[in-house]
């Protein structure tokens, strides 16, 4: 009813990015396919180095970094989070500080219990 005559902002009140509506279409598709190729090559690279003669610790950190890179591309470009408003972006991202803390205490506990065994 009320949003019949709006040329652009046809969204019904949710905070949403203007990026996907305003930029031209070919560029959006280019970004999508570029993201796809990056995700694909990172995945192939991960499987390839899984059996490389590197120490387990080095491999683990490579995997962690590459996983965060992949997650960043999915959340940022597929879910358009990089183009949301600043306040919205950080409302979503900041709670994950708690997860980082949980990883730290849980893994420290696991390693400790293994050591005293």
């Amino acid at each position: 009813m009320s949003d019949q005559h709006q040329p652009k902002g046809y969204y019904t009140g949710d905070i949403h990015n203007q990026y996907v509506e305003e930029h031209e279409v070919p560029k959006a598709k280019k970004v999508i396919w570029r993201t796809f190729w990056i995700l694909l090559f990172v995945t192939i690279f991960e499987v390839a180095i899984a059996f490389a003669p590197l120490s387990k610790d080095v491999l683990q950190w490579i995997f962690v970094v590459l996983t965060i890179v992949k997650a960043g591309y999915i959340v940022g470009f597929f879910m358009h989070l990089f183009h949301e408003k600043f306040s919205f972006r950080y409302t979503i991202l900041l709670p994950f500080v708690l997860i980082v803390y949980l990883i730290f205490i849980a893994l420290a506990e696991g390693v400790y219990l293994n050591l005293i065994d």
Partner: peptide, 14 residues
């Protein structure tokens, strides 16, 4: 996250 962290903690434990 909770599931994967629990996995990580018990994996380090054993």
């Amino acid at each position: 996250s909770a599931l994967l962290i629990a996995y990580g903690a018990l994996r380090h434990r054993f």
